[in-house]
């Protein structure tokens, strides 16, 4: 564990807290993609199966359970809460799951460290996490007025990715045999997807304006 990794995890946790806070306090999920949230829930389920058979640290297990619980809580609010679900932009959130899940699954079957069920699912979760933000980015591009909490949620997720890359660079420099090319390539792709968003986020922040993405 290094400082970059800890910062990354904290930004990740903070992003989820901001989203939950937005949903609970405003009773609205306007601007949030249910597709992205369900993909994240799937990512966590596939990746954290190791909760059942391996133990790394109390911190790790605690965070894994927290991510799982919060992901399902968000999905539950957006799907089933009487008030919240009415604010969901169903017509705008049209990204097809299959376009993301199928290629990731195929890739995980071909490119993995070992061909076992848990290993393929773990690899699948790494690939899927890299692209799971796409429905959210597409939804934001379609939305005229992006509220601050939604913009901050995505910015915090981007910060989490950024710190994880610093963490990998640090681990590459300090640990022997740290050659995690599957994680690196997926991670860099994932972070690059945020680059465009961050550009406009910074512009609007500087101008002290509400975030608006160009069509």
């Amino acid at each position: 564990m290094n400082l970059f990794r800890l910062c990354g995890d904290m930004f990740h946790l903070l992003s989820i807290m901001v989203l939950l806070l937005k949903i609970r306090a405003t009773r609205s999920c306007r601007g949030i993609s249910l597709k992205t949230q369900e993909l994240y829930a799937l990512v966590f389920v596939c990746r954290y199966l190791d909760l059942f058979y391996s133990f790394i640290s109390v911190y790790n297990s605690f965070m894994k359970v927290t991510f799982l619980a919060t992901a399902f809580s968000i999905v539950r609010y957006m799907r089933y809460d009487k008030v919240v679900k009415q604010t969901y932009d169903r017509e705008q959130d049209t990204f097809r799951y299959v376009f993301l899940i199928a290629p990731c699954l195929l890739l995980a079957l071909v490119l993995n460290h070992r061909f076992t069920l848990t290993e393929v699912l773990w690899t699948f979760s790494i690939y899927l996490e890299a692209v799971a933000i796409l429905p959210q980015l597409v939804l934001m591009q379609r939305t005229q007025n992006i509220d601050n909490l939604t913009a901050n949620y995505v910015a915090l997720l981007g910060a989490y990715r950024g710190f994880y890359i610093l963490n990998w660079i640090y681990r590459f420099a300090t640990e022997r045999h740290y050659r995690q090319w599957i994680v690196w390539i997926s991670g860099v792709i994932q972070t690059a997807l945020y680059a465009d968003f961050f550009f406009y986020y910074a512009l609007c922040w500087k101008a002290n304006k509400r975030l608006q993405l160009p069509a």
Binding site: H12, I56, H113, W122, E175, H177
Partner: peptide, 10 residues
């Protein structure tokens, strides 16, 4: 050990 190192992140 390689696997442990690979999976100690979230």
């Amino acid at each position: 050990n390689d696997e442990w190192q690979r999976k100690d992140e979230l």
